[in-house]
Simulated assay, not measured.
Amino acid sequence: MTDRPRRDIIAAAGATASLTLAGCLGGSDSGTEADAVALADHPLGENLSDWPHLGSDPFDAPATLVVLDDPSCSRCAAFHQNTIADLESEYVARGELAIAVRPYPVVYAWGEPAAHALEATQSRDDAAFWNLLDHYFAEQSSFGTDNVFAKTETWLGDNTDLDATAIVDDARSEAFADRINATLSAGEEAGAGDITPATFAFVDGTLKTSFNGSQSTASITTALEL
């Protein structure tokens, strides 16, 4: 496996040290006001309907949240297990919100092979993608670059009907590297840099604000005018 995506984002960020130290950020409740850019014209809008999302099509929803996160980032785990879960159970369930998630591996080294496994899984089954992402978040401390593929194959084999070996083979060969590199490039262009989770809030198809780090449910609902 090569490390092209990590080299690309490191080059953009300018320093390897900042990748590890700043990459997984505890959040505050303040967002960054953004220029009013349409989701369709935003760097993260390209092919967004094809990416994993909860709820209706991100371009059709009254409000849309686009989240860039790394499966190895502890703050991403907290954000999903708390804020995203709250938003899904209430606002997504009522059809008021769509949440799109894109793997953005910029933190610890095992996040990159995990991102490749997530892409290979999502190409076969959306539900399995979400379940695998939840598994990575729940068991972060048990993963490393030396075991991520083996543990992923075991989990997929035990918990899905998918061909776990084929998925891991695709991940090892970086069959979906173009998608990951496209996300890294779009994140850089959008100003996400090397901070995860990076969250972009759109209302009526227009960017309202963006956040760096894990955010509270109240911060997100206020930004989305929910």
Rank of each mutant, 00 (worst) to 15 (best):
D169Q: 08
D146C: 05
L97N: 13
G144V: 00
H116T: 00
R94S: 12
A127Q: 09
E96V: 01
F129G: 00
E174S: 05
A128Q: 02
R172Y: 03
A117S: 09
F202I: 08
Q81R: 15
L156V: 08
S185C: 10
Y136F: 13
L118H: 05
N147Y: 05
A182T: 09
I180D: 07
D146I: 01
T183Q: 12
I167H: 00
Q140M: 08
A115L: 05
G95W: 04
A182G: 15
R124W: 00
E96N: 11
H135F: 11
G187V: 13
D158N: 14
V168C: 01
A182P: 07
L118G: 09
I195P: 04
E119G: 00
E119R: 06
D163H: 07
D161I: 06
N159R: 11
A166G: 03
D158S: 12
W155Q: 07
T152I: 00
A114L: 06
I84E: 15
Y108R: 11
E90W: 00
A98Q: 08
A100M: 12
A109K: 07
A117Y: 03
D161V: 02
G157L: 11
E88I: 02
F143R: 06
S185R: 15
A192D: 10
D194L: 14
A166F: 01
N147T: 02
P105M: 03
W130N: 05
D126C: 01
A85Y: 08
A128M: 00
D178N: 11
K151N: 07
H116E: 12
E189L: 09
A190F: 09
A171D: 00
A175K: 07
V107Y: 11
A109W: 04
S185V: 14
N181Q: 15
S142W: 03
G191H: 01
G157T: 07
I99V: 14
F176S: 03
G187R: 14
G191V: 01
A117N: 03
D126A: 14
A128V: 01
S142A: 14
T199V: 15
E96T: 04
A182E: 14
I99D: 13
T121R: 06
A120E: 00
D146H: 12
A114Q: 06
A138K: 14
T199S: 13
D178P: 03
T83E: 12
F176H: 10
T183R: 14
D146E: 15
F200I: 03
A177G: 03
E189T: 15
D134M: 05
L133M: 14
D178G: 07
G144M: 03
N147A: 07
E90C: 04
H135V: 02
E112D: 12
L184S: 14
W155G: 10
Y136V: 02
A128W: 01
I84M: 14
H116D: 12
Y136G: 02
W130G: 04
E112Q: 13
V168D: 02
Q81E: 15
D86S: 15
N131D: 11
A166Y: 02
